[in-house]
Nucleic acid binder design. Sequence first.
DNA 1: CACAGATCCTAACACTCGTTAGTTTTTTTT
DNA 2: AAAAAAAACTAACGAGTGTTAGGATCTGTG
Lengths: 196, 196
Amino acid sequence: MSKIQSKKNSTKKEIIIEKAAKLFREKGFGAASMRDIAETVGVEAASLYNHIQSKAEILQAICFKVANEFISQLDEVERSNEPTLKKMETIIRVHIRMMLDQYEHVYISDHEWRHLPEPYLSNFLNQRRSYRKRLSDIIEEGIQKNEIKNIEPYVAVLTILSAISGIESWHRSRKTTSAETLEANMVKYLIEGLKK
Amino acid sequence: MSKIQSKKNSTKKEIIIEKAAKLFREKGFGAASMRDIAETVGVEAASLYNHIQSKAEILQAICFKVANEFISQLDEVERSNEPTLKKMETIIRVHIRMMLDQYEHVYISDHEWRHLPEPYLSNFLNQRRSYRKRLSDIIEEGIQKNEIKNIEPYVAVLTILSAISGIESWHRSRKTTSAETLEANMVKYLIEGLKK
DNA sequence: CACAGATCCTAACACTCGTTAGTTTTTTTT
DNA sequence: AAAAAAAACTAACGAGTGTTAGGATCTGTG
């Protein structure tokens, strides 16, 4: 049982996941081969299997790490007793910053989840549905409390999450707009649209 | 020279493109094989090559058809002398309806363009950059004319286009929200966010 | 130093991929 | 009905896929 040196193991595993993430984002999960990944790690393809079990496991690790991070941040927001608009602003900022700071991982979780093997795929989609439902409930509560404008909550959630996921495109651009400007203006846009 | 029966030819070609589009959307360009496409068309894989030149050609046809449609709609809006807010609403509605009516093609154009071979890839990206610049110019003009709120035009464009492209997720859902409700609410959200 | 275990390598397997060649069948034209 | 054209088929190519087996090498502990 290799428990003692698990620190070194997980370190190498993390390197593999990090390099793989970059390639998955650049070329897509299907087009990035194990040999591609191995090359950027500086090793032969077969050697990767001393640290991971399969290509799919890398994708799983990325997708569920991101999902868990979003969920635990939402837990926190839900526990707080802020007004609805403040809650939504916090959530929006969390999403924007995740997109700015962990671009690679969030992008993969957004775009490559369909390559997850079952039962992870169903699991992931259930988590996502549940997450959006919770966001939608926050908005619905805000409408009933007359704190935000009357808008179909599902559509508002869809609009917000999709808008933010588009930051991917900024990330690949020549960045004439700074990250701060981007965050400030997108928050402004998305929050103004919720106000009464 | 086969020009006379070009109608029957392009008809079969269109069938292939349509079936391929469905598969590209479901499984991604890379994961959808020529043999998959052939099966849904009801033919052997090799027979496809009597009507198309390559797998990539199918992707090109889809991406550029969509791009051209958006561009020509934007031409029309630019020629009109409506106020900025009205222009933006028209563009937003065009995008939403394209997403509703031509889901499969628009989705592919949004998500699978990276698999375009050169020089089509550069071409496509140039067209896209130019398109976004034109949208951004409309917003900038609106700000200078004091018709809409002071917001970074690039960020507004990014937000609008990304939000709409998220309708993809609605399309795959159980649709407890009707298309009309979706369009009305998304327009409301995105336009309110632009108003002063 | 010697042993153990972790990590690497080479080689290969069993597929699948897009595409081409060559032939046969179906459809259209004369 | 004969000839020509279009479209289908079978078979195969070369390349690339994720993954496994088995052995070599490196690393750290006793």
